[in-house]
Design a protein around this nucleic acid. Sequence first.
DNA 1: ACCTGAACACCGTTCAAGT
DNA 2: ACCTGAACACCGTTCAAGT
Lengths: 177, 177
Amino acid sequence: MARTKREQAPEEKRNEIVAAARALLVQEGYDATSISRLAAAAGVAPNTIYWYFKDKDEVLIAVLDAELTASMSDYLQLQTTSRTERLLWVANQLAQVSRLVSTVHTRLEQSPAIHAWHERFHELSEGVLRAEFQQAGVAADRIEARVKISVFAIEGLLSHPLPEAEKRAICAALVGE
Amino acid sequence: MARTKREQAPEEKRNEIVAAARALLVQEGYDATSISRLAAAAGVAPNTIYWYFKDKDEVLIAVLDAELTASMSDYLQLQTTSRTERLLWVANQLAQVSRLVSTVHTRLEQSPAIHAWHERFHELSEGVLRAEFQQAGVAADRIEARVKISVFAIEGLLSHPLPEAEKRAICAALVGE
DNA sequence: ACCTGAACACCGTTCAAGT
DNA sequence: ACCTGAACACCGTTCAAGT
């Protein structure tokens, strides 16, 4: 096909791959999302994925970045409710992409790129929580442990789903309400 | 080789496979531990693994069972120190096999056998923690949330290693000391 | 610049055959 | 009962070739 006959901007094709990858990674997981399946879902040949991405982990990172951007902008429009409800909202948002979270933790050790993304994500999350605890008047020398415990508890809620009431009780215990 | 000429009891060979699997799974992880590598380490042909185990996940479960049995008997000889120190000990024990923990969480969704093992392990762990909180005089209606938060925090410490002092601060915050 | 068909070295698992 | 060689259908990735 001649170059002038393009029907699609190149980054649109890339976005299609990312969208297909998001759906597959969330619903089926990393291992079940083979490059062949992803290519079929995106309507390209398997090796075409490698024109747009260095390797499979870079596809994952593109999905994670898109997800993070969308979720952060949602969070910022939420400053109305109580701290408990805000934390519960975050837990429930992440629960919708829990397979993504679990995949990140598994591939941490094998992929330096995923490792770096994970570090960045935790710095961001802990910054937000630190600000919440400061605002709530928690003593300065107790904030760090409280921040870590909250992060760990949220992650725990992802891999071990609980009824809404129990989740809320845990969030309340975490923020001290 | 004639049957009477056996140099090795059959379960000894099985134990060798489990021992080799433990080392590989802890040091290299599930994906990196291919059946071929495991077979080479155990000194058998790859398909011989399938004589002793139904599939790769059953090898993992055999390793997990051996690990759990050994750790539980260690824990029971530990009833001397403070609650903080006991919790920290558990965290550090698990940290030595954190790759195993991470593997269990990843394979949960794909293997019903791993899922069942994981449920059993949590029931056991939560039972132990519940007893600790009761003994510490925590109000009955607050125990469940405290138990869950502690479990989640321990798991968090595994995937996000921290300096010993921070780990101890977190354990102290969890048990309320 | 963008995309592909064919190949490479793997993987977990199965099966028929040997002792 | 225990173990194997050879095969099966996959996998992520690369490469030379096409437009």
